[in-house]
Computed example of a mutant assay.
Amino acid sequence: MDKTERRILNILKRRGGQRLSLQEIQRRFTTGRERKAVLKQLARLVSRGKVTKDADGKFSITSAKKRLVGRFEPTNERFGFVIPVSPETNDIYVPAQRWGGAIDGDIVEVAFTKRRGGRTTGQIVRIVKRTRHELAGKVLKRREGMFLVPLSAKVFHEVVVVNNEAGPVEDGLVVNAVIDKIDDRLNRINVSIVEVWGKPDDPEVLCRIVIARFNIPTVFSDEALDEARRVPRTITESDLRGRTDLRSLVTFTIDGEQAKDFDDAVSIERRDGGFRLWVHIADVSH
């Protein structure tokens, strides 16, 4: 093992599991040449699994604790839980100081220990997948700057607007913002406003907040589009088998102006001094 590697491991071991930044480690070396070598040797130690690099770029000795992958769900500003992918494993309690830069919904790797007779406690050591890159929220203007009150996620950081690409925005309006930086040390998230949605009591805005909160896709996947393209545009004899062909009737829907799912329609015809009303229901299984 390289002499620099041994020194790095000793430095991290003496810190008793405390995480150190690259600069904090480099300061313990005297010459510029040694400090320059630290970054290269740290990368080697991380690749061999001897040192862990956390989501915020800090380093620590790789723990002998068990690890697993799950979805992070903060409960309040003090703690949250990692919900394991495997349903056989209990949720893992994670105090706020061990969130490792994770926010609501992120897929994370957590190192954990199970206390005898107590709950399983862990520390997030890696963001496997960042599931949320934007935040919708209500603008809050203060003397010291512009802030965002998140509406689309359980976020307990202070959300600071550092850039506004959407033009003038009034206090109290709902906007959508891109996440620029998450700083656990300052308990702060920096965002840039990219779109103004409108007033918080507007039904359309409420709908967009729900879509953002649950990361509901707003565009069809390539697979879905390919399947739609393969659907025949003509009705065949086999399609009509066991059905009555009523295409000669004038048929209309009664859905709202913005409806996307036309699943029923009506027709009416004059018969024997009266009228017959037809109600057509979509065969969604066809």
Score class of each variant (00 low, 15 high):
residue 47 S to A: 15
residue 116 R to K: 13
residue 264 D to S: 03
residue 41 Q to I: 13
residue 204 E to S: 08
residue 72 F to K: 00
residue 208 R to E: 08
residue 4 T to E: 01
residue 185 R to V: 12
residue 187 N to C: 05
residue 245 D to C: 09
residue 75 T to F: 13
residue 30 T to V: 14
residue 262 F to I: 03
residue 248 S to Y: 15
residue 52 T to W: 10
residue 233 R to L: 15
residue 20 L to S: 08
residue 36 K to F: 12
residue 29 F to T: 06
residue 50 K to Q: 14
residue 260 K to I: 00
residue 30 T to D: 11
residue 84 P to I: 03
residue 59 F to H: 02
residue 82 V to D: 03
residue 151 L to E: 04
residue 244 T to D: 13
residue 41 Q to H: 15
residue 234 T to A: 15
residue 128 V to K: 06
residue 18 Q to E: 12
residue 154 K to Q: 13
residue 151 L to K: 06
residue 245 D to I: 08
residue 78 R to Q: 11
residue 255 D to Q: 03
residue 116 R to S: 09
residue 228 A to T: 03
residue 150 P to W: 07
residue 184 D to Q: 01
residue 283 D to Y: 08
residue 224 A to W: 10
residue 243 R to A: 14
residue 19 R to L: 11
residue 270 R to I: 11
residue 5 E to H: 10
residue 122 G to P: 05
residue 22 L to D: 05
residue 7 R to L: 13
residue 70 G to A: 02
residue 140 L to W: 10
residue 107 I to G: 04
residue 247 R to V: 08
residue 286 H to G: 10
residue 253 T to F: 01
residue 5 E to P: 06
residue 257 E to M: 10
residue 228 A to P: 05
residue 25 I to S: 04
residue 162 V to F: 09
residue 182 I to S: 00
residue 135 L to R: 02
residue 93 Y to T: 02
residue 231 V to P: 02
residue 8 I to H: 06
residue 257 E to L: 12
residue 142 R to N: 04
residue 112 F to M: 06
residue 46 V to S: 00
residue 64 A to H: 14
residue 228 A to D: 03
residue 6 R to K: 15
residue 59 F to I: 02
residue 250 V to S: 06
residue 57 G to C: 12
residue 161 V to W: 00
residue 221 S to L: 08
residue 88 E to D: 14
residue 256 G to I: 00
residue 139 V to M: 04
residue 3 K to S: 01
residue 264 D to E: 12
residue 11 I to F: 03
residue 251 T to N: 06
residue 165 E to S: 14
residue 57 G to S: 05
residue 180 D to C: 07
residue 148 L to F: 01
residue 70 G to W: 02
residue 58 K to V: 00
residue 275 F to E: 01
residue 213 R to E: 01
residue 47 S to Y: 12
residue 236 T to N: 09
residue 263 D to T: 01
residue 134 E to F: 13
residue 233 R to G: 15
residue 261 D to R: 02
residue 279 V to I: 13
residue 206 L to R: 15
residue 105 G to F: 08
residue 37 A to H: 12
residue 133 H to D: 14
residue 16 G to T: 08
residue 177 A to K: 07
residue 43 A to I: 12
residue 51 V to D: 01
residue 281 I to V: 14
residue 21 S to N: 06
residue 27 R to V: 11
residue 60 S to M: 14
residue 123 Q to G: 10
residue 26 Q to P: 08
residue 266 V to D: 06
residue 170 E to W: 05
residue 126 R to Q: 15
residue 180 D to A: 09
residue 274 G to W: 11
residue 114 K to N: 11
residue 205 V to R: 00
residue 195 E to M: 11
residue 65 K to E: 13
residue 251 T to C: 10
residue 278 W to M: 10
residue 256 G to A: 04
residue 59 F to D: 04
residue 87 P to C: 04
residue 154 K to H: 13
